[in-house]
Design a protein around this nucleic acid. Structure first.
Lengths: 211, 211
DNA sequence: GTCTATATTTGGATAGAC
DNA sequence: GTCTATCCAAATATAGAC
């Protein structure tokens, strides 16, 4: 028989309020941009005065950290839920649709998780661990298809490239997201060509101009 | 015989100071991040007090705008200087090396030109025109190779993807920049396959999770 | 053109009453 | 736990003397 642990109503209440604050914070950054999060505005949204927030979070960075953690967990959970068919091409397409969709549906979250543009903010080790989880799931799946870390790097570049162009140059549209399938076909054909032992063609030297 | 225009020494001096201020602004954003540009710091770097800057620029945004214009002109000039061999594969490689090199050598400039993360800042029409120039050059070159705007969009996604991953996850390194050649080979093989009239395979539906 | 002085706003954070 | 009051710092921008 399972012993019911004693409920701590105070702790439950506190958690509920924390969660409410975080929800409001997400709303705010979606509207004002990630850097536009201010404690005054945030407090007003939940019907508090700014100093009251300090009963729930030690600092503004602590709020960012909790948001980072939430976002990373959402990503890892979504990633884990992607069905696998065994057909590499199909699985890659579904996977990239998930990634690009996840990022473009909330650019502020994308910025927080993948771009790190908040000056002075670094996720705590625990929060960072959550973010590694999603990438590891992806790495394992690719490995199952016989693809190594080099292929992973190329794939993530394609994913962030489509995402970034979509967000920067056609927000709310689908000028780049609609090319996910084509991009995966291109990638798939490419990695299908090279076996385990491959030599790379000669490299062109970098042509750059200094200011 | 060419008539020498009368030199306006005052205007020359003024232009020199403007230029000096902009140089200092670039140094500052490279060190502190694009959003970290403050008029106090900037003034101190050129031996002025903050209000004196208003003799040269109407506002902080005007400084960003001048920087945007400079960056766009550098990009357009560099783009125009890229030699063409007529060998499509080689030309694409050289072109992407230029783009990725240009972006990664100065992430703050990349952010200003291509990502638009400064809240409230939009380049003036004249400055924006400079930025379109570079992209148009690229478009024309691709057209010369028989590649349309769809191919252009895919190529820019690859370029910004490699750039973004490099800057975000391996700053100063070459984990992604060293894959430029491979990425172009992948892209080239892909666009070589489809002729002018091509049908795309069936599309996989988007799999997304809402928060 | 450059300065000092200042207005104005806004931000994060703390002290202490209740 | 929540509030008022306040501190402190930093930012852009303006006014006016020199």
């Amino acid at each position: 028989m399972v012993v019911q642990p004693i409920r701590d109503r105070r702790a439950e209440r506190r958690e509920a309020t924390r969660s409410e604050i975080l929800d409001a914070a997400w709303e705010l950054v979606r509207a004002e941009g990630l850097a536009g999060l201010s404690l005054r505005d945030l407090a007003r949204r939940v019907g508090m005065q700014a100093p009251s927030l300090y009963s729930y979070f030690d600092s503004k960075h602590a709020i960012y950290d909790a948001m980072f953690r939430q976002g990373a967990q959402e990503y890892a959970r979504g990633q884990a839920l992607i069905p696998e068919t065994g057909d590499g091409l199909v699985d890659l397409k579904v996977g990239l649709h998930f990634f690009v969709g996840f990022c473009t549906e909330d650019p502020a979250r994308y910025q927080l998780l993948f771009q790190r543009t908040i000056p002075g903010f670094e996720p705590s080790p625990e929060s960072y661990a959550s973010s590694v989880e999603g990438l590891e799931t992806l790495r394992a799946r690719l490995a199952g298809m016989g693809l190594d870390d080099d292929a992973l790097d190329l794939l993530t570049a394609i994913g962030t490239g489509l995402t970034d162009q979509q967000i920067s140059n056609d927000p709310g549209g689908d000028r780049w997201t609609r090319r996910v399938d084509e991009a995966i076909e291109m990638f798939f054909a490419h990695v299908s060509l090279r076996g385990p032992a491959t030599r790379r063609p000669a490299t062109i030297e970098k042509v750059g101009k200094r200011r």
